[in-house]
Amino acid sequence: MAEEQPFALQRHEKLMERLRLHGAVRVRELADALGVSELTIRRDIAALADRGLLTRVHGGATLPTVLDETPARRRRASAPAFTIGMVVPSLDFYWPQVVNGARSAAAAHGVHIQLRGSSYDQAEDRRQILRLVESGQVQGLLLAPSLEGPGVAELIDWIGGLSVPAVFVEREPPRWTPTPRPLEWVRSDHALGLELAVRHLHAFGHRRIGLVLSKGSPTSAHLAAGWHRACEELDLPDDFVVRESVALNVPGHREIIGGIVDRCRRDRITALVVHSDPDAISVAQYLTEQGASIPDDMALVSYDDEVAHLAHPALTAVRPPKTTVGRTAVDMMMARLLEGRNRPVQRTLVLPELVIRASSITSSWQRETPPAG
Rank of each mutant, 00 (worst) to 15 (best):
D50M: 11
S135R: 08
M332Q: 13
R187N: 07
V261W: 01
R254P: 00
D238T: 07
F168G: 00
D68R: 06
D121L: 08
E195P: 00
V246C: 04
R103Y: 13
T328C: 09
T219E: 09
G340Q: 12
G117C: 10
A280T: 12
L234E: 09
A49E: 05
D277R: 03
A153D: 15
P173A: 01
I45D: 00
E148P: 00
T40Q: 11
D68K: 00
A105E: 04
S282W: 02
T219Q: 10
R11P: 03
M16R: 02
L213C: 06
V57W: 02
E195L: 01
G161E: 06
S37L: 05
G136D: 14
H309L: 02
R208P: 11
D235E: 15
S37P: 04
V66H: 07
P371Y: 04
V261M: 08
L115W: 12
V318Q: 01
R103T: 06
R268N: 08
H228I: 05
A166I: 08
V27A: 03
G226Y: 05
L30P: 01
G117F: 03
A299K: 08
E255V: 01
H109R: 03
T177V: 04
R199L: 02
L196K: 11
E232M: 07
A280G: 13
P180T: 09
E172K: 15
A144E: 06
A77V: 04
V307S: 07
S146V: 12
V98C: 06
R207V: 14
A107R: 15
A284T: 14
L196G: 04
D304N: 12
S188A: 15
Q97N: 14
R187S: 09
L155M: 11
R229V: 11
D277V: 09
R127M: 05
I260W: 08
L201K: 10
L132T: 06
R116V: 02
P80S: 10
G193D: 11
H253A: 11
M86F: 03
Y303R: 06
D125R: 02
T348M: 13
R187T: 05
E232Y: 12
R51K: 13
R229A: 15
G60L: 01
P174W: 02
R43N: 06
R207M: 11
V355C: 07
H12Y: 15
G291V: 09
N342C: 05
W227A: 06
L155R: 10
I113K: 02
A47G: 02
H222C: 07
S78A: 14
H312R: 15
A102K: 09
L354M: 14
R51N: 12
R28A: 01
L53D: 04
